[in-house]
Design a protein around this nucleic acid. Structure first.
Lengths: 233, 233
DNA sequence: GTTATAATAACTGTATACAATTATTCAGAT
DNA sequence: ATCTGAATAATTGTATACAGTTATTATAAC
């Protein structure tokens, strides 16, 4: 109930399907960073014509997952440490806004849900089931988004999180340890139920900056791996 | 030198022209908030075919200047006080990030330019030439964007500023006083040259929140005017 | 074997055709 | 006069055609 916020799409179109599919390929690095989006023809493994495919790519371009080259071609946006840092810092500030708004809207129900998620984060973390820890952690943040009711900021955060998902994927690929201190969520929740906006804001900022370190490390590993590969050739 | 940051567009296309023209119409409220984007055919005053026009509208949709109705039609995104507040608060935080980065990159040259702009803001304000005050104020903020070199955040801010321009336009239409205290820029600059990031961040936040008040007032006037108009009919 | 140049192929941007959907008009029933 | 519903018109999403551009290949000269 607290983890969706999508509006009602009208009809589902080929463009939207293409958009989702290409986006997934990019986020999972099936289409690798920097790789040329091979001729719209090749993109036609999706079995749709150029028009909706173009439209999907143009949307991805606005969302910065794809860049247009000077000749009109598209490439997957390259990975960069500078970008990770910039996005994470931005996200930390934006989630600060959202947590303040969320505190204004807290209900018994929402507190209960957040408590549940926090406990699950702790539990799965203790069991070293980090996949689930990550999932529940994500749900925790999503719940804050929903409770905040700040649609403007949430839309931007969703875009940023999409971009960050690529780095998360790299972290998994390169076995960068991703276990977030499960205590952090507890501290954040505590500040929330005490309606301490300043503290909640501060703690969530810290929490996200911590996540940044993991992502940066992942990129470094990725770049080293690439360098090694191209030298070994 | 400090007030542009656009990349190198490849070839200039009909889509881009349509995008710019429609955007300008929306920002200047020639296409009014909430108004249906009359059949792509009508949009064809721009003398281009449906394909690039569609593409332009879809880009505007991602940028939230236009919304798609359930039947596939487009409308100009309605104005709302909630949106103004959310955008301004977001912008205040993001400019906080940028000013910190900018302080890291300060050079004698950039300080000189910022000083010049600050003086011009004061001067034109004293002469009650508020059009120029606004212009120079805008350049001041743009200079900070450029100096920060934080392309990720800057791109988001540009989008937000586009959306805010509609409200600025309303403020002019409804004669809401827009004179920003010219001292505020001076205080910000002072914090910058002293490399006091915390203070600079705090002051620019305050400054932007102050601007929010003006915009909110403008929307209230606009809504009252509309209510009066529809009752008087 | 390398480089230059011409010919060919592939691709991009835009216009337009076509089918499916949605809105509008008009006639007839109440 | 008002409402209902069929017929018509307008509009949308997608496919495709066409022209102009960019990339690639092949051929010839050195």
């Amino acid at each position: 109930m607290f983890d969706t916020m999508e509006g009602n799409l009208g009809r589902i179109s080929a463009k939207d399907i293409a958009y989702e599919q290409i986006k997934e390929k990019i986020l999972k690095c099936v289409l690798e960073p920097g790789q040329a989006i091979v001729n719209e023809k090749l993109g036609k493994e999706l079995e749709i014509s150029r028009t909706p495919l173009r439209e999907a790519l143009q949307r991805l371009e606005v969302e910065e997952l794809v860049v247009r080259n000077s000749n009109g071609t598209f490439s997957v946006t390259p990975i960069s440490i500078k970008e990770v840092k910039e996005i994470f810092i931005m996200r930390s500030k934006l989630e600060g806004i959202l947590i303040r708004d969320a505190i204004d809207n807290l209900t018994d129900e929402s507190i209960e849900y957040l408590s549940y998620l926090t406990k699950m984060v702790q539990l799965t973390s203790r069991l070293e089931n980090y996949k689930d820890t990550e999932d529940f952690g994500g749900k925790f943040h999503n719940a804050i988004y929903t409770i905040s009711n700040n649609t403007t900021v949430v839309k931007i955060i969703f875009q940023l999180n999409d971009r960050l998902n690529r780095y998360r994927h790299l972290a998994h690929q390169h076995l960068v340890e991703i276990k977030t201190s499960s205590d952090e969520h507890e501290v954040i929740l505590d500040a929330m139920v005490n309606r301490d906006k300043d503290r909640a804001e501060m703690e969530i900022e810290k929490h996200i900056i911590e996540a940044m370190r993991v992502a940066v490390k992942a990129v470094e590993q990725y770049e080293n791996a690439n360098k090694a590969a191209s030298e070994g050739k």
